[in-house]
Design a protein around this nucleic acid. Structure first.
Lengths: 258, 258
DNA sequence: TCAACGTCGATTGTCGACAATTGGAATGCT
DNA sequence: AGCATTCCAATTGTCGACAATCGACGTTGA
């Protein structure tokens, strides 16, 4: 140590600032690949060669490698050391099940939050702020999709954070950032594309907020579940159309799963 | 397409064979870094510079980058694009909470499984096989730690797979491979090091198996929870010793969380 | 004195090339 | 013919160097 470092060697990690639309190259590649796999452009078990993907997307193999690791954590690819990456073609059943599980967990979280008086008060304040920033983005014609999603996500995270059940919060938030759900937020042609859909979602969340203020646990649970079911149905319909499949009506059920 | 490929362009992804002890270099780096962070060798928010880590571990920056991404998914590091990686010092409270949440979820899964007659029959068969391979590794003096963990993990996965609740299974299995739990299985000096501890865990699992055969849902739930609590207490004690902290007795509670 | 701007060093992101390992095919043996 | 062995091409893993970007510092102006 021959020089005094300009900043202390340890300290607070800088806070991530709101990232509006600056996706890194690996993120872009991962999103495009994820959408392609979900749309059925890759068959289940089809090999993903780094060199091919690099040429296709016009980058080097480095970013492609990183994108493949991201796909692995989304469950859309299997990586075998020294043997390459393979696409995992998720069936519509599996995707529907992911939504159903989330609907059930989120509904429980909303209900438990509504029961806790002090927690509701704090959650509502944060949710109002997040929902307000979402409201500003509703009428943007295009391009604001991602920002709107982030605002809605922040609103939902308040419920999970204050619901009082650590394992539910952990499961829900982990899913948001690290599982198929992260994908649903990112893969392009899925939801929130049109102002109409944004208005609809905003209306749901306004209702959820009102239900929480009124301490109406059943209404809060039902509204949150139904909002997720709506998204599920749109995603399934969109994917089915892209894949040329039909959606089994049984996947559209709206009852709470066990 | 000027040449016919020797293998069909699409097909089944090869099945991953049981990996005994062949960890890739990035995995080794990630494990060492994870253990270091958990042990308190890095302070919360301390910066992790790629070049330094590369020199310390005697590799290039490539594997280090990959290891840092792995740490991010374990929740032990925060990666800010173009701004570097920062260690996340998990408090003993947070780690204890992760164990408690898992104990609660796994206990529910065991109870629900015990209620389902047909599922129990199938699960027991698979569990017997997995437990048998674990039993072979009990008396190995050293080095079999990882293989033993994998066998126990396979046993546990049977419960989650057949419990009949998709969202519980997903939460539990995702945690095994992609969250702090993946770390608990991998970071070196945590558990299953001694034959005594292996014998103890094996006895627990034998008991769980017996309880399932007897369709005793409460015994199955309690045993599984207690086994996880045992691991929790050992991990906390080990980490506290390494960090020079004391373990709050409140973290060692054995009641089921809400 | 303070704020805004420009410059600079440090660190991450990306790239192309080389090395290591794998799976399969061809070969030789029983 | 069936099986084990050897060899090879294809692909991933790793490396060092270059480029892009960020935060911090110093300067300049009001």
């Amino acid at each position: 140590m021959d020089a005094i470092p300009p900043t202390p060697p340890t300290g607070e990690a800088p806070r991530a600032r709101r990232r509006t639309s600056a996706l890194t190259i690996p993120e872009q590649i991962a999103n495009r690949l994820a959408a392609a796999i979900l749309n059925g452009e890759y068959r289940d078990g089809e090999r993903l060669r780094e060199q091919d993907l690099a040429e296709t997307h016009g980058v080097s193999r480095g970013p492609v490698r990183e994108a493949l690791r991201a796909l692995e954590r989304y469950g859309l690819a299997i990586l075998l050391p020294r043997r390459g990456a393979y696409a995992v073609g998720l069936s519509l059943d599996v995707i529907a099940e992911a939504f159903n599980a989330r609907a059930a967990l989120a509904g429980i979280a909303a209900r438990q939050l509504a029961r806790r008086e002090a927690a509701v008060a704090r959650a509502v304040v944060e949710m109002e702020a997040a929902l307000a920033s979402a409201a500003e983005l509703v009428e943007e014609p295009a391009g604001a999709t991602h920002a709107f999603q982030l605002a809605i996500r922040d609103t939902a995270l308040c419920i999970y954070r204050y619901c009082g059940a650590g394992h539910i919060e952990r499961a829900l938030t982990d899913q948001v950032d690290r599982s198929i759900w992260g994908l649903m937020w990112r893969a392009q042609p899925l939801d929130f594309q049109t102002p109409e859909r944004r208005r609809e979602s905003l209306a749901f969340w306004t209702g959820i907020l009102a239900a929480l203020r009124a301490r109406d646990e059943h209404a809060a649970e039902r509204l949150l579940r139904d909002d997720i079911f709506n998204t599920r149905d749109r995603v399934l319909a969109s994917l089915a159309a892209l894949r040329g499949e039909a959606v089994d009506a049984a996947l559209m059920m709206r009852e709470a799963s066990a």
